[in-house]
């Protein structure tokens, strides 16, 4: 199922920013500095298992459950 990475990234940004656009922008910068550019991933992006693993780790580091989003898995 394509688009899992985008959903995971959106979950991180949503959970951490708690509605603040300033924090959302900061989280985006942090993700890019960690090597994950949110703008690159769309709902059509392949579910690359290596990238999924990296985003899961980033989620853990951020204290966010990346699989707890509206889409569910």
């Amino acid at each position: 199922m394509p688009g899992k990475i985008k959903k995971m990234i959106d979950t991180i940004i949503q959970q951490r920013s708690r509605g603040s656009s300033i924090i959302a922008n900061t989280i985006k910068v942090k993700l890019i500095l960690k090597g994950i550019n949110p703008d690159v991933f769309t709902s059509q992006s392949d579910d690359n298992p290596l990238i999924i693993k990296r985003v899961e780790k980033i989620g853990r580091d951020f204290g966010v459950n990346v699989n707890r989003h509206s889409g569910g898995y």
Binding site: R16, S17, S20, K30, D61
Partner: peptide, 11 residues
């Protein structure tokens, strides 16, 4: 800085 940013949103 990476770890600092993980644990807080304070800049």
């Amino acid at each position: 800085l990476d770890r600092m940013g993980d644990l807080t949103d304070v800049r």
